[in-house]
Design a protein around this nucleic acid. Structure first.
Lengths: 341, 341
DNA sequence: TTGAAAGCGCTAACAA
DNA sequence: TTGTTAGCGCTTTCAA
């Protein structure tokens, strides 16, 4: 039989109201009583029932992490787990109850964020896994519950976002390649339509231009962000140009970089001796393969952490909904080498 | 303002009791009323508040997934995410509310499973991330709340477990290597004390013996399950034996196999031409590197799925607490080759 | 077939 | 400083 507040009250000889006040550190309880109640609670192993707390309290702030498409098959889900870790870490450190909810587009269509939050008694949510063209975005922007989207900025009075400056990051990576002496660079592109790809491309082109380098159309290799496609398309590119046109492949994700490296190695060439290769994302895989992939670390765990922080700040009114741009970092591996010009 | 059952009652002109019965498919509601209530609920966008349901209902069963050490730094967390996916998948498919809780040893010491379950109104839990020598195991075995442990069997009236037959799996892997013509095999060992390692070693030795092969002490390379250690120790082993003693390395995890492959490649040798290498676990990484690692797929997602199933069965009384042994599978990559004897 | 009402365990406003 | 009590939103008797 579970121990309720009533048991603690009986054991310490006070009323349930006093127990509640004592345990919640209200000021108007005598030290003696507080101690007695605490002792009794500890003795009995009392833990308050969260549902009851949620139900009766107006001020309790618990948050939710909503991951869209979590259950769909994905080849790689470093992102989901790192983001979850970051958010849970913040919540744990700050004693904020947090819950994880997985959704899909069907569910999102029939249940608004407001509804979901009411259903689970949460006062705000972090929304992850949205795609830019997701119909849920529009629904979110009308939400009255505070929320924070990750990666995809969504307009709305109560909607904050945590994003990366993809353009700047891609630009930096390009600068780095150029500083290593690379002037003929191929780009392994993620997707013609995805916003991240467009942003990254913008950054690449901007950097190249600033160095007086032009990117030729035939040196842009389009994929759909899959490892296999990179392997095949880069392979075809290499076969089409036995006399190497470029010295480096700048890839829009680590998985693409991996496919690229494998295509190169399959042809008896090596990285970074024959070609330098860079990635983007900073998934753990990038550090495990050899050579380790030089990449833009998105710091996904930090993203989760900061998303939780922003949300909690919004809920408590300490901060307005806003767009937070997180720092990225260049992680150097062995996949790039300096070349003499 | 959130929509409550009272709003639905008012809108459909019945009492809240009737709304509850109509929406929960009780038989004693007239079809007309039921439809009217449903329509009103849909119209208003009503969703029941879970906390209130939990609090008032005796029969509602929700489950929890408790991950121990989730927030601790781990190089690789494929397991956490796959297990979570499996459990959430089962719960979603069977309409069982599920929640994720992360704990650590400190928290486990001060809060028993019973307490945690009462706190969150759950009727049972899947416990993942336990180590064999974890003091929490003992606490679990006295638990009155039904629970299912993953990987680590724990005795107890109300404790079920979902495990792999590590001995058999390792045995199969060894059989496979032998069937490919390998008779001189080195073992890259995980940890002298971990139960999984002991089990796997048992399987390996048993298989070898059945083929009349003896494993020499100097061909067992001990590590602590880290990638770096495998890289170094296998490297040292290779350096110590320029005239190869063995044709294959049987590793106790995929990460060890990766380190082993890199040590081999670093010396200008190649896999599988010079040495065959096998892993264990079936993490996604194993499929991405080249050559893809031949490994024992633990089917972690299935583990999560089956753990949830067992737990729900135990809660509803359909099944007793028991130990479920899940099937593993050999996943063949390019890291092993057949050799002529 | 329905409505009224008693809780589930807790917080918070109000009295004392 | 404390006890009493009215809910929070829901389910589930018990009557009608």
């Amino acid at each position: 039989m579970p121990v309720t507040i009533r048991d603690v009250a009986a054991a310490s000889g006070v009323s349930i109201g006093t127990v509640s006040r004592a345990l919640n550190d209200y000021p108007d309880v005598s030290t003696v009583t507080r101690e007695r109640v605490r002792a009794a609670a500890a003795e009995l192993g009392y833990v308050p029932n969260q549902s009851a707390q949620f139900l009766s309290s107006k001020r309790l702030t618990s948050i939710a992490l909503i991951i869209s498409g979590f259950l769909e098959d994905k080849v790689f889900n470093d992102f989901d787990i790192m983001l979850t870790r970051g958010a849970f870490q913040f919540a744990t450190e700050h004693d904020v109850p947090i819950s994880l909810h997985v959704t899909n587009s069907r569910e999102q269509a029939e249940r608004s964020l407001d509804q979901l939050c009411f259903e689970h008694n949460v006062s705000g949510a972090i929304v992850f896994g949205l795609r830019t063209d997701d119909p849920y975005c529009e629904s979110l922007s009308r939400s009255t519950t505070p929320c924070v989207t990750v990666d995809v900025p969504v307009p709305g009075e109560r909607v904050g976002s945590v994003v990366l400056d993809d353009c700047a990051a891609a630009s930096e990576m390009t600068d780095y390649l150029v500083s290593c002496g690379h002037r003929r660079i191929a780009v392994v592109h993620g997707s013609r339509t995805a916003v991240v790809s467009v942003e990254r491309m913008e950054g690449i082109v901007r950097s190249l231009r600033s160095h007086g380098i032009e990117l030729r159309d035939e040196d842009v290799i389009y994929t759909n962000f899959t490892h296999e496609e990179a392997f095949e398309k880069v392979g075809a590119y290499l076969d089409a140009h036995p006399e190497p046109r470029v010295t480096a492949f700048l890839c829009m994700s680590d998985l693409l970089a991996l496919g690229t490296i494998q295509a190169i190695q399959r042809r008896g060439l090596s990285v970074p001796e024959d070609f330098s290769v860079t990635g983007y994302d900073g998934i753990s895989l990038a550090g495990f393969v050899s050579p380790a992939i030089t990449t833009v670390d998105q710091n996904v765990q930090t993203k989760g952490y900061e998303a939780a922080r922003l949300l909690c700040d919004m809920i408590s009114g300490r901060r307005e909904a806003c767009r937070v741009v997180l720092p990225h970092s260049l992680r150097k591996g062995g996949s790039v080498r300096k070349i003499s010009r």
